[in-house]
């Protein structure tokens, strides 16, 4: 019951979804399922928030080294959540925080998003430029033909995509476009077809209960 019922649910739901693709009269069910998925995902997200809070509260209560950072995470979560929720739930009391639905640009929520979260996320991704540069220094060694092809393609793409490359040698732009358009597309297409076959096979294995690691151990 505890293990076989979930397998049966997965099979029935899978068959119903395949049915919606082939039978037009199941369109209503398809539209319903499109609404189901985000709702279930919402609860899963809520579970994630609980896990996040439990993790940080545990560290703060135990006063593990660096617990101040955990407190910072909890406080910033609470501040952002409150400035987002309160003006919507109690507009009279917390209207001064700005209505993010009616006028997003004037809300504190949007202000925090635009001036704190976005710069930090953008800079965090920008930092990867340095790490990817050091990774390329290690990876780009012309040890054999395959590695040389990888190195040459990457260098041509990088040079061809900056104005300096065109200034040094004008055909670089055409060459980089050619690499992106032809050998790169050929590689991507071969990978996509392989991935598609793999995904369909895995989905079938999940539906038929051949792959059942998701059930976990025990009862």
């Amino acid at each position: 019951m505890k293990r076989s019922l979930p397998l049966a649910i997965a099979l029935v739901m899978g068959l119903l979804m395949i049915g919606t693709y082939y039978f037009p009269w199941m369109d209503g069910f398809y539209r319903l399922v499109l609404l189901w998925s985000p709702v279930i995902a919402g609860f899963a997200f809520f579970l994630g928030i609980l896990s996040f809070l439990m993790h940080h509260i545990f560290k703060v209560r135990r006063k593990v080294p660096g617990w101040g950072y955990n407190l910072t995470a909890i406080l910033s979560f609470a501040v952002m959540l409150l400035v987002g929720l309160l003006p919507e739930i109690y507009p009279r009391l917390f209207g001064f925080l700005g209505d993010q639905q009616a006028d997003p640009d004037a809300s504190v929520f949007k202000w925090l998003f635009g001036n704190v979260l976005v710069p930090m996320e953008a800079t965090m991704f920008a930092l990867l430029a340095f790490y990817i540069a050091s990774a390329s220094f290690r990876a780009f060694r012309a040890r054999n033909l395959e590695a040389t092809l990888l190195l040459a393609a990457a260098i041509l793409i990088m040079i061809g995509r900056v104005p300096l490359g065109e200034w040094i040698f004008p055909p670089f732009t055409d060459i980089q476009q050619w690499i992106m358009e032809f050998p790169n597309t050929a590689a991507k297409r071969a990978i996509m077809i392989g991935v598609g076959l793999g995904m369909a096979a895995t989905a079938l294995k999940l539906m038929l209960g051949i792959e059942r690691a998701w059930i976990g151990r025990g009862d």
Binding site: R3, L5, M17, S37, M199, A203, L206
Partner: peptide
């Protein structure tokens, strides 16, 4: 597990025709 099963079943059922269409048929 029941809700995970429903999600996996719905995702798998959707993935089979959609990936065959998008990743294989369209590419060919």
């Amino acid at each position: 597990r029941w809700s995970i099963a429903a999600t996996i079943g719905l995702g798998s059922g959707l993935a089979i025709p959609v990936t065959i269409q998008a990743n294989i048929t369209t590419q060919i």
